[in-house]
Design a protein around this nucleic acid. Sequence first.
DNA 1: CAAGATTGATACTGTTCGGTAACATGATCA
DNA 2: TGATCATGTTACCGAACAGTATCAATCTTG
Lengths: 209, 209
Amino acid sequence: MTAPHSEQSVHRSAAGALPPRQRILVAARELFYRHGVQGVGVEAIAEAAGTNKMTLYRHFESKDLLVAEYLRGLACDTVRVWDDLAALHPDDALAQIRSWIDLVGGHGDCHDASGCALVNAAIQISDPEHPGRKVVEGAVRTHRERLTALCCASGLSKPEQLADQLFLLVEGARASYRSVGPNGPGAGLCTLAAALIDSHRVTDRAEAG
Amino acid sequence: MTAPHSEQSVHRSAAGALPPRQRILVAARELFYRHGVQGVGVEAIAEAAGTNKMTLYRHFESKDLLVAEYLRGLACDTVRVWDDLAALHPDDALAQIRSWIDLVGGHGDCHDASGCALVNAAIQISDPEHPGRKVVEGAVRTHRERLTALCCASGLSKPEQLADQLFLLVEGARASYRSVGPNGPGAGLCTLAAALIDSHRVTDRAEAG
DNA sequence: CAAGATTGATACTGTTCGGTAACATGATCA
DNA sequence: TGATCATGTTACCGAACAGTATCAATCTTG
């Protein structure tokens, strides 16, 4: 296979004095996202973190558990995004939803979109016993529940259905980004989602649900 | 990492006398899909195909090119699915769309869904120069064009928008299947898509496009 | 039957992988 | 100061990886 990766920028960024465990997680986040959890080795992560494999294994007892920790970080970020949006638009569920769509649809390479990386990672983990699997499952469940709650609070019709439609739309856009670039079908996510939301306005003539 | 795979059933299935190249492609399809293109080695594929690595390399000059050929096969299947649906529902674009949705939404593990495997594989290929990348891009483009053409022919409102919405919905459902199982947000894909199609009926009051 | 091509089997190369042992260094803190 | 602990460094292990060489067995085809 071909997997060109050559980076080592984490160890002297920002305040520079981050403890090795944190630097490892930062490097892992970057490399796991770019090359996939299977496509990058622990040695490359340690090097990118400005440390070495031995120190890495002093903080994480295996690569699988490092992956799980990486996913936990992504999941944590996902809920923080929702919290930030809630703080930004208090008592306005619809605005929170719209801001979320704008957020994940805005940047073409979904770099900060932790949800994207979560699902990507899950796809690459074939072993159902992998410790990262339940992390992803929990994160997706939480994410879905929160989105559903917002849809319910927004006063739109068929809120549960709308929530799942939005979920799939966003997840499909992310997959589209990764596989065919920002000009694929996911390019107009914001518009597509807006139209979908609009179709869930009070007029609930659709009986398909 | 943990990647348990142990299968070798291809070499004596069906007529049993398939030439090794075909058996290799069949085995590759199975294993690449289940464990990812990065998660399975050529030796495992050869063994599952009832042959050995040497014969594999006599037919495919590298693993990357085998992956590309695997993806080409998936792309070929994708267009054949559309052709079959066109033959099944001639001159009825809407029926073709609905049948397609039912097809990809029907089986919980999207096993026959080659589109799913295509995008999955693309996610795992970080190298933009990988020969499989352009195969995926071409397949997705063709797929999207065909879906758009059908939406246009179906007489629904905002057909291009509907096509991309359906595309994202399906792709998101596939990602959901893989990451959190058949009970995730993609469970109700058929219902969700039907509601979406319904919202694109003649009443084009949505101005968000 | 004989010549040629295709296949199978085994062994091998060199590299990378996940993971560990051993020792040296640097800080901290009593 | 001296003991302790986290970290860095190097080297190593066994396994798996992509890819190749060699030779025997088979199968086609004249």
